[in-house]
Design a protein around this nucleic acid. Sequence first.
DNA 1: AAGTGGTCTAGACCACGTC
DNA 2: ACGTGGTCTAGACCACTTT
Lengths: 230, 230
Amino acid sequence: MNASNSWQTIRDEVKRRVHEREWTPGASIPNESDLAREFGCARTTVNRALRALADDGLLERRRKAGTRVALHPVPKATFDIPIIRHEIEALGQRAGYGLLSARTGTPDVGVLSSMNCEPRDMLHLVSLHLADDRPFMMEDRWIDTTIVPAAANVDFSKISANEWLVLNASYTEGHIEFSAEAIGDERALHFGCSPHGAGFTITRTTRVDGKGITHVVQAFVPGYSMSTRL
Amino acid sequence: MNASNSWQTIRDEVKRRVHEREWTPGASIPNESDLAREFGCARTTVNRALRALADDGLLERRRKAGTRVALHPVPKATFDIPIIRHEIEALGQRAGYGLLSARTGTPDVGVLSSMNCEPRDMLHLVSLHLADDRPFMMEDRWIDTTIVPAAANVDFSKISANEWLVLNASYTEGHIEFSAEAIGDERALHFGCSPHGAGFTITRTTRVDGKGITHVVQAFVPGYSMSTRL
DNA sequence: AAGTGGTCTAGACCACGTC
DNA sequence: ACGTGGTCTAGACCACTTT
């Protein structure tokens, strides 16, 4: 209904006061009870509004100390990390996929430490993802078959590791990193571009209860970008 | 207190049931009233827990249709976009800054369209940010002085545009894009690196009530990355 | 010790979307 | 039409943090 006493209305009004400097960065704002009285609503409703703004980084709240306008509102950008195939299809293109190599081996220390485990044999997959038959992304992935035994018997030339894992091995924690890497000779070969190009790269590690499931480096073709609204 | 009836407890229990396939992707889960009865708590509490999981993308909720386990849980990664100086200082380094050029001119159509405005003169700033005296990031920024007139009289060799704008021109909407760009000859000169390197690049536009305030391209030195937990 | 936000309750009404 | 989630209320107790 978005009436004058909805939490969204209160949120917007508080936002307005901050933007228009009625409440300045670093200053305390009235407590929830006072605001509830002012807006003529329950304290719960004010709480909901202020909590939303605190989640956005606009306010800082501490018990007893009260609520303050953040000194430096840190913009938070939220990105959806979709399954590659869905992302390609959302662009109106046809998703293709090819397994380049599937072997067993021991990852280097960097991968091991991010997976939080001792050196041991793991499944190593290298694959190429296509959009409308053109190269789109090259993926280098390690899977710990000690943690996900079923992965050892999967034919990853038919289903991508990404999709299989999403359906068969949910994680509890993970880490993701965005970076820019030179394409390099090997990827240039598959991408059909210069090795000096810059590729947007996503490095991701997922774990269950602290045990690493998979570590993957996804290098996108030059020109790829991720965007979101602020 | 995190007792057995806290919303966090319910959230974790629901999460567990999804992860352990008691509730499978695509399936409906009991409605809020039933869950409240099961957990012995108020419906409000269940609502809070389920809403949090829906925000995370694990559940999909629709009035009347009920709550379902998401078919493809889309991981959402949230990044903090800090002020450069704070980011450098958080790394334990000393932040430096130099204005390379400040002129007036008309931006190209790409910039204009993302700022949602007609061709007109704007302030154009190019600057170099340093960490412990080493190059860190190069910034190319347009500021529409029609929208933020005060910016015309600021000495941007003393305060970075980023910091000045944060303090003096809050925005209502914005767009941010992460990409990988080749360093190129000009930046290579300032960075003291090869022009063939790959630079992590952030392109950001902010607006107030639809009117573009500023458009900025920040190219980071090779090796820079952004990361977050999932 | 005391003030402030964090949360829970029990009940209510409503908006939305499916049937 | 009606079931489900979305939200609001008034009150209560608690946790945390500062004084």
